[in-house]
Amino acid sequence: MVEVITTISIWIIPVTICFILIIALIKKVPAYEAFVEGGKEGLKMSVSLLPFLLGMMVAIGILRSSGAMDAFIGLLDPVLDKIGFPSEVAPLALIRSISGTAALGVTAEIIQTYGPDSFIGRLASTMQGSTDTTLYILTVYFGAVGVKKMGEALKVGLIADFIGIIMSVIIVTWLFL
């Protein structure tokens, strides 16, 4: 099953491109001109995205490098222990919504320390795989189209991440323990 899906993942891009181009030729769409036109729009979007992303990355960089984030996690540890949340994955839970690269590093570290097939290793894997970097997605998607007022998007996104963390704990406990 997994092999089938992996193969699909490899084939799907070239096949999709081929399909789009064949249909375009049949329908007599000026394919190259349309491609250039759409590409220009992509270029414009990347440029407008830059200040949004740069601002966000610098703020995250400051927070991480100062050690404030690790200190905060240390503070939270005893509280999490009390409510029965596995504190080994707390760093991942906290960083997952903020920084994708940092989260990946933390996941690798947890898996290395506790082993990929331990309860903690499986939990970290599930957490990493089932959520995405909300702050990054918000910044990129809103930044590229120039939406400055995010409204309740950030709040809803962070609540969703929180639910995702709880769900991972519940599901992994239920499936593997």
Binding site: K27, V29, A34, F35, G38, G39, K40, G42, L43, S46
Partner: peptide, 25 residues
């Protein structure tokens, strides 16, 4: 961030170009 945006830029140009063809077709 500049490195990241440059790599994003390439996929943005490619896929938005492709999708424009798909849209027109």
């Amino acid at each position: 961030t500049i490195t990241l945006v440059i790599s994003l830029c390439s996929v943005l140009i490619f896929w938005l170009g492709m999708m424009r063809i798909a849209e027109k077709a």
